[in-house]
Amino acid sequence: MSILVDENTKLVVQGVTGREGQFHTLRNRAYGTNVVAGVTPGKAGQDVEGIPVFNTVRDAVEATGANTSMIFVPPRFATDAIYESLDAGIDLTIAITEGIPAHDMMRVYTHLQRSNQRLLGPNCPGAISPGKATVGIMPTDVFTPGRVGIVSRSGTLTYQISKEIGDLGIGQSTVVGIGGDPIVGSSFIDTLQMFEADPETDLVVMVGEIGGDEEEKAGEFIAANMKTPVVGYIAGFQAPPGKQMGHAGAIITGSSGTAQGKKDALEALGVRVGTNPTEVAEIVADTLK
């Protein structure tokens, strides 16, 4: 097993005919992901190297049985694209788009709570179950099949940590980028819960950063509900308060959301936290011994 994406994924790509959308769609297919459809309004009947294009997500779902959507449309159209995917009954929507306004996401999130559907992102690199399927923009070469799950708010840091543990001969079950925005559809807890239920995940690495309190909440969840060991990493110890560090969500507000606060909270709850990616990999190897 693995979580979120695998050989049962039937992917529809919203924004498939754009430059980025097309590039990553074809990369995902080349890795082995079952890409069944694309959507671009007004371009029904066309195809992208054999992938049929539809006008709407509902049309794509009816014709192909797509169960997962990847969103590649620009920020000003992306909120609508998320609602369209949810309304078409897609089980898992993965929004890659960076720059969706926070007020839009408050409403999307509230709407999402009324269904059993999942949203990953926005502003996320997607998810990969090595050897099975990838949906998103992750560089697939970095990952090898294995039994460590990774969940992260950052893309590049995930690749870095995956490579470091890969260098120690350890592969991944699924790697999940939940996104760097202040409000994202799936939290650390949502993802940890799935990893806990996955018999093929023996350990989870949680990669957090400054801003918000999702890492602290995850710590409490881990202490109360998880048998699978979790190793933590937090980025942003040097970040000054009030400054957005690249990600819209990476900002210390007043005295809350600091890296030290998160590290202390996790350690107090029994989660080991590495001070740099290399040390995280060493703790993973040590824990798995």
């Binding site: 992260s152 950052s154 590049t156 840091l157 990669v207 560090m245 690249g246 001070t275």
Partner: peptide, 11 residues
């Protein structure tokens, strides 16, 4: 390249 890796570099 990437917010996470830059934050980590500062640290």
């Amino acid at each position: 390249n990437g917010a996470g890796i830059v934050m980590s570099s500062l640290d």
